[in-house]
């Protein structure tokens, strides 16, 4: 169910996934690996093993090397992610302005620890270093939307809104 939904999200106009289109377009240009991985993740929500094999075949880089690149960068995931991705900023400014309390609240609300996905698959939590909105700290980012000047209360309300939107 989850995978199907995510695939839909990553589909181009022609009905094929962006990832497949990118693979077709590939013509031996240098440095294509990371954009291809980003496209796979954009399509599936994570990088499935089959995508690694596909890329390896087309680009000619051994799967082990691709795995090495995936695990080096924090953006890439090898497990499916929740429908909503919550990035909790723990940059300097947020840390000074009590981001730990925000993290704790989200963990309590979603009943997860650290970088985990909720049982219902609605949320994946990620602690990140800095979202670059330091003057609005503490900040979190849900999907591509940034929310600033948070308090534990505001976060609880925000999560409730997202949960209700998902259930609609």
């Amino acid at each position: 169910m989850m995978a199907r939904e995510n695939t839909k999200k990553g589909q181009g106009e022609n009905g094929f996934s962006n990832f497949k289109v990118e693979l077709w377009k590939y013509q031996g240009e240098m440095g294509a690996l990371i954009p291809l991985l980003q496209s796979a993740q954009g399509t599936y929500g994570y990088i499935p093993e089959s995508a690694i094999d596909h890329i390896s075949e087309v680009v000619g880089i051994p799967a082990a090397d691709i795995y090495g690149v995936i695990t080096f960068y924090s953006q890439f995931r090898l497990k499916p992610m929740g429908k909503n991705i919550i990035k909790i900023c723990d940059g300097t400014a947020c840390h000074v302005n009590a981001s730990t309390a925000i993290l704790r609240t989200v963990e309590d609300e979603l009943k997860v620890n650290g970088d985990e996905t909720t049982e219902d698959g609605l949320f994946t939590l990620q602690k990140v270093a800095c979202l670059g909105c330091c003057s609005l700290s503490p900040v979190i980012m849900i999907n591509d939307e940034t929310h600033g000047k948070l308090t534990p209360k505001k976060v609880t309300k925000l999560l409730k809104e997202y949960r209700e939107n998902c259930n609609e």
């Binding site: 300097t92 400014a93 840390h95 800095c130 670059g132 330091c134 003057s135």
Partner: peptide
């Protein structure tokens, strides 16, 4: 690749 936590002028 403005990675320093606490800096956001490049963004």
């Amino acid at each position: 690749d403005e990675g320093d936590p606490g800096a956001f002028m490049d963004r």
